[in-house]
C-alpha cells in the first residue's frame, strides 16, 4: 500500500488559515489501512482542529467525510454538491487525492494533511516499512526476493558496500542492510554464484527519471 504520515498540526492549521468552515476528506484506500487518513483519523483531526481554533477564540466548523477512494474520478465526483459549502478542503489521502480533487474542482483549494512517504507494508501492528521504489522494472527475483533499489540506502545492485556491519546499514543501526540479508540468503541456498554475476547499470527510464509515467490498458480504454 501507499504509506503516509500525518503532517504536524501546526502546518495543517497554517494551511487552514482564516477559513471558517472546512471539509476534512478521508480516503478508504491505503491511508485507511495504514491508519493515517481513514474515517477514524478524519474524526481525530476534526476534533483537534476544532479544539485548537476554539482555544484561539476563532471557532472552526468542520465537516467529516471519507470517500471510497480519492484516486478515481467517480468517487471524487461524490462531493460535487457540497464542495462549494466550504472555505477549504483538507484531504487526508496520499498525494494523489488532493490532485484529483484539484483537477476536478478547479476553483477550490485542497490541502494535503498527510506526507506521502513510501510503498510498503505493515511488518507488525503500527509499524510500516518501505518495500518498493516503483522503479518500473522489477528484478527482485535476482536478489532473493529482496529489493536493493528500495531497501539499500545507495540502491546498489552489486552490494554490499563497505559500510555493512552486523546486518545493519551504515546510515543507522535502525536500518537493516538489505544486502546482508541477500548475501546470507544466497549463501544458505548455496547460490553464491548468482551474486557473482555482474549486474549492469540499471535502465532508469521506466522509473521517475524517465519523466511522469502512465499505464495504458488498451482493452479497457473507451
Amino acid at each position: 500500500m501507499i504509506v503516509a504520515d500525518r503532517k504536524p498540526l501546526k502546518e495543517i492549521l497554517e494551511m487552514v488559515g482564516d477559513s471558517k468552515k472546512v471539509l476534512i476528506l478521508g480516503c478508504k484506500g491505503c491511508v485507511t489501512v495504514c491508519n493515517v487518513g481513514g474515517n477514524k483519523e478524519v474524526g481525530i483531526l476534526a476534533s483537534t482542529l476544532k479544539i485548537a481554533r476554539a482555544k484561539e477564540g476563532r471557532p472552526l466548523e468542520v465537516e467529516e467525510k471519507a470517500l471510497e477512494r480519492q484516486c478515481d474520478p467517480e468517487y471524487v465526483d461524490q462531493i460535487k454538491d457540497i464542495v462549494e459549502d466550504y472555505d477549504a478542503v483538507i484531504s487526508m489521502a496520499c498525494g494523489v487525492g488532493p490532485q484529483f480533487l484539484s483537477e476536478r474542482y478547479p476553483g477550490k483549494r485542497f490541502f494535503p494533511a498527510v506526507n506521502t512517504t513510501f510503498f510498503g507494508g505493515a511488518v507488525q501492528h503500527g509499524i510500516w516499512e518501505e518495500r518498493c521504489a516503483g522503479c518500473g522494472a522489477c528484478g527482485i527475483h535476482h536478489f532473493g526476493g529482496l529489493c536493493p533499489i528500495a531497501r539499500c540506502s545507495k540502491s546498489l545492485l552489486n552490494g554490499p558496500c563497505g559500510g555493512s556491519a552486523d546486518g545493519k546499514c551504515e546510515i543507522s543501526k535502525d536500518v537493516v542492510c538489505i544486502w546482508d540479508l541477500i548475501v546470507k540468503k544466497k549463501m544458505e541456498e548455496g547460490h553464491l554464484d548468482e551474486l557473482m554475476i555482474f549486474r549492469p547499470p540499471k535502465v532508469w527510464t521506466t522509473a521517475r527519471d524517465g519523466g511522469p509515467r502512465k499505464s495504458v490498458r488498451e482493452e479497457l480504454v473507451q
Binding site: P160, C161, G162, G163, A165, D180, L192
Partner: peptide, 10 residues
C-alpha cells in the same frame, strides 16, 4: 565489513 565470508567474493 559484513558479511565477512562474502567480502573476498566481492
Amino acid at each position: 565489513a559484513d558479511p565477512f565470508e562474502f567480502r573476498v567474493h566481492r
